[in-house]
Design a protein around this nucleic acid. Structure first.
Lengths: 161, 161
DNA sequence: CCACGATCATTTGCCTACCAATGATCCGGC
DNA sequence: GCCGGATCATTGGTAGGCAAATGATCGTGG
């Protein structure tokens, strides 16, 4: 649940004059959307890890497992596109799911380039459990916001994704 | 500028019935805040990499360099707290900045545990350039939103960070 | 039929990101 | 003075995340 916060130490006394960096005029890095996205993501990941301890899935593993469970049969690269992971990334995620026998891997005789993935029975069962935890994780992540703000945030994030 | 989008392929025809995963009732992983945060972060990182090609800084390297430039002298762990990076992470980020001689590293004789960091002249100069690029990056990231929405998003992200 | 471009998957390299463990040092209390 | 808890930094392990290169295969156009 912990994540590297901004709550540690009192601000340093040093000033622009001391550092000679007068050219940074009014640019506050902590207020930039990129910084805030990184921080929000860190907090969510920490909440996720906590809430998903039972299923022992990372956010990407969870996303891939859910998608495979929805779809049934899918090639690896296609699954990557559906879950916003490039081929190099999805490869490792899928490998770990296969190692745990949550996903099966077969080859398509009609297209020998592809790896065809499908959920196992254990994968489907775990996916069902994981969704329950995931609902709580989403709630916890959005807890600081009102209902209206929660919908706003999701809508805004969709627009910039 | 490219990032693994959701635009590649048409949706698969397979249904819940085909996969046997009826328990995922109405849970749409693409609409969850965690998924959207990851995606938004990916897009921003891609924009950042593009816009910061001249300075050749990653988002974390940029944040650390800006903070060191603002403050002047700071210990490594403290810099990590200010920039939301844990000690293991800030260590690598700082090492790369030192390798490029953007940041200097000295020891405090009064506290021999600590590493005292400070910007070099080259570091201050690069920070000034990088801020110019960073303003454009923020604008590009928020471009799909109206002015009001931009402020809303930043405010909401602050609340959940 | 074959050559060429596109797609699929993998591998390597680099960078974040965290946990856990370690060793050095500091500091407060006794 | 010293002992124990806290802090500082580093290391090793695991996991995203992307670029770039590679090799296999597919499909189409000539």
């Amino acid at each position: 649940m912990r994540y590297p916060g901004l709550h540690g130490d009192p601000p340093s006394i040093a000033s622009e004059a001391a550092s000679g960096a007068a050219a940074l005029d009014g640019y506050v890095v902590e207020d930039q959307v990129g910084f805030l996205l990184r921080r929000a993501n860190q907090r969510h990941t920490a909440i996720f890890q906590d809430g998903m301890a039972g299923a022992d899935l990372t956010p990407t593993q969870f996303t891939a497992l859910i998608k495979v469970s929805e779809i049934g049969r899918v090639t690896q690269n296609h699954l990557g596109r559906l879950t916003a992971m490039d081929p190099a990334t999805i490869q490792g995620v899928v490998r770990r799911l296969i190692d745990r026998e949550l996903v099966s891997r077969t080859t398509d005789p009609l297209d020998r380039r592809t790896v065809v993935l499908a959920p196992t029975q254990a994968g489907l069962a775990l996916a069902a459990d994981a969704v329950v935890a995931a609902r709580r994780i989403t709630d916890a992540t959005l807890d600081p916001l009102t209902q209206q703000e929660q919908h706003q945030l999701v809508a805004l994030l969709r627009k910039i994704s």
